[in-house]
């Protein structure tokens, strides 16, 4: 049972990597930074893991570390998306002018 769940997860992992390669493929250099910083914000998805490990209503080291992870991941998520948007806004302005 345990192995089949694990294998399923492994399949999802490998297939997602292929999807990632296909999705990005050729990208104009103008968008290298926004893509990187947008993807970076997505990697803040670790917040879900942090939420779950800090879920129990008790105080122990595991929960405290989980809460710390929430703070870090949240900085990554909120900061990452906002900064990407700020950059892309600058790119957009020119399009309107043209």
């Amino acid at each position: 049972m345990m192995t089949s769940v694990f294998m399923m997860a492994l399949f999802i992992f490998v297939l997602s990597i292929f999807v990632g390669f296909e999705l990005i493929g050729k990208i104009p250099p103008t968008l290298h930074t926004p893509l990187m910083s947008g993807a970076n914000a997505i990697s803040g998805i670790a917040i879900i893991g942090a939420l779950i490990v800090s879920g129990p209503r008790e105080w122990n080291l595991a929960v405290i570390l989980g809460l710390l992870a929430i703070v870090f991941a949240m900085i990554n998520v909120v900061g990452g998306f906002l900064v990407t948007d700020r950059m892309l806004q600058m790119f957009k302005k020119k399009e309107e002018k043209k």
Binding site: A9, I12, F13, V14, S16, I17, F18, V19, G20, F21, L23, I24, G25, I27, H32, L35, M36, A39, N40, I42, S43, I45, A46, I48, G49, I52
Partner: peptide, 18 residues
């Protein structure tokens, strides 16, 4: 958790391409 596995893999792949 699938959403972590999937999004992590997507980011991993995009970083590798760059």
């Amino acid at each position: 958790n699938n959403v972590l596995i999937i999004s992590g893999a997507l980011v991993g792949a995009s970083g590798l391409i760059l």
